[in-house]
Computed example of a mutant assay.
Amino acid sequence: MRSISCAEVDSAVHVHTRYGSTLSRHRTLEDFLQASSWFAILTDEEKSRVKTETFERCCAAGGIACHRGDPADHWLGVIEGIIKVDTASACGRAVTFAGVPAGSWFGEGAVLKSEMRPYSVVAIKDSRIAYVPRETFLWLLGRNHSFSRYVIDQLNARCGYYVGLVHNFRLHEAAARVAFCLAALFHHQLYPATERTLALSQEELGRLSGLSRQNTNRALRELAEAGMIEMEYGAIVVIDLDGLRRYAHIGD
């Protein structure tokens, strides 16, 4: 599946993709930039260049926004929807590294190393993705100390997340793995705008946690019975975020 440019569709309130789904366009790209914490620390000249050179694309659920092995030519932000960062082994087994909800930026590591992208970026739900060109990203990094500090904080937080991910998946059972994946979506540095109602199905959460749908269902029931979440049709409501973090052994 290919990514769909928002320029390929009309400018009505909703975007109808060729996959038959509908994506709300209530938030503009400029709104998204203005709401990003790093954008506020830029000079007027820097903001102007970012707004001029950043573009967006729409990606239907299941579509690939960036292929593994492509040049890492852009820093990415999720305007709407949710994506996953994953890869596949030679035998076809998929491994998901992270889910990235709306309001978040990611991919700075690959851009900095000027390497082929070591993972694919796949839309879990219909999504809109912002693309900042690598040249623009590096230009900001070289001239704005506060932006550089932001990127360092991002990399540090992401490193901590992956250490926690490996720890959790190797040492803990299904319910703790699901709790980790849910709680991780609320990391204040990496994912600052996540809402307590997550528009995720059990199947989608299973993809993030690396579990079968059956095991994901059992884990969610266990977390719901403990009063940490509520399950709605096509959504999960986080009731006790601190409880999820304790259950996932985050910080242990």
Rank of each mutant, 00 (worst) to 15 (best):
A179H: 10
N215D: 04
R128C: 01
H187D: 15
L220R: 00
R143I: 13
I236S: 08
F186K: 05
L185I: 00
T197R: 15
V163F: 14
I129T: 03
S212N: 06
L138N: 07
Y191E: 06
F169L: 10
E108M: 06
A183W: 05
A179N: 13
L223P: 10
A199I: 07
L155C: 10
V121N: 06
A193F: 07
W139C: 08
A175N: 12
I129F: 01
L112H: 03
K125W: 01
I129A: 01
I229D: 05
R207D: 14
N168H: 09
A224W: 02
A175G: 13
F169W: 06
Y131V: 04
D153N: 12
Y191C: 09
R196W: 13
S127C: 04
R218Y: 06
H167Y: 10
N144G: 04
A226F: 01
I229R: 05
V166Y: 13
R218P: 07
G206Y: 00
S120P: 03
E115G: 09
A226C: 02
L171R: 15
G142E: 14
L155I: 13
S209Y: 00
E203H: 07
R196C: 07
N144H: 04
R221M: 10
T194V: 05
N215M: 13
E225M: 07
M231C: 14
E203D: 14
R207M: 11
V238R: 05
N156W: 07
A174Y: 08
S201T: 15
L220W: 01
S201W: 12
H188K: 08
Q202V: 14
Y233L: 14
L190P: 02
W139F: 03
V122Y: 10
S209I: 00
F137R: 02
L138F: 12
R143E: 12
Q189R: 15
W139P: 06
L200F: 02
E115C: 11
Y191P: 04
G142F: 08
N215H: 12
A123T: 05
M116Y: 11
L223K: 03
